[in-house]
């Protein structure tokens, strides 16, 4: 188990320079708040969804390098994807955390593969993706209504 596997340069880059950090105006998007009570990590994820596609996603939150870099990558990766494609990506991410090797069109995500070797940190990496799953559920619910 090497620390270098966990803290790769690309992860630290997303942590120091997060993509899509911020918020949309009120009523423009689906919003999800999630937290991790054991460590205090928090994320608010917003997604603009139109015609079953994620037009854009933004997040604000507080947390460690793993949780925040994962949120940065996720919000970038789902841009332009259909809700089903985004859900598949969340599935693939769960696989990555189990030590599987799924491929991601947004390659930066694969840098998080090292997290699978640090069981205590998996919940950090999955926080944003769990918010994504909830957001997809919410958007689909609104689509049907």
């Amino acid at each position: 188990m090497q620390l270098d596997d966990l803290y790769r340069r690309v992860i630290m880059d997303h942590y120091k320079n997060p993509r899509n950090r911020g918020q949309f105006g009120e009523g423009e998007s689906v919003a999800i708040d999630l937290n991790n009570p054991t460590c205090g990590d928090r994320i608010t994820l917003q997604m603009k969804v139109k015609d079953g596609k994620v037009e854009a996603a933004k997040f604000v939150g507080e947390g460690c390098s793993i949780s925040m870099s994962s949120a940065s990558m996720m919000t970038d990766a789902v841009k332009g994807k259909t809700l089903d494609e985004a859900l598949q990506m969340a599935e693939n991410f769960s696989g990555l955390m189990k030590g599987e090797h799924p491929e991601f069109e947004y390659e930066d995500i694969e840098a998080l593969s090292g997290v699978s070797k640090f069981p205590a940190r998996i919940k950090c990496a999955t926080l944003a993706w769990n918010a994504l799953r909830k957001g997809i559920d919410q958007a689909k619910g609104q689509g049907e209504a």
Binding site: M1, Q2, L3, G63, C64, S65, F118, A120, R121
Partner: peptide, 18 residues
């Protein structure tokens, strides 16, 4: 972030309380 500090300490063999 304290989680990152605790992970580094853990990798060095010390069990710290995150």
């Amino acid at each position: 972030h304290p989680h990152d500090v605790a992970t580094v300490l853990d990798a060095e063999g010390s069990r710290c309380g995150p």
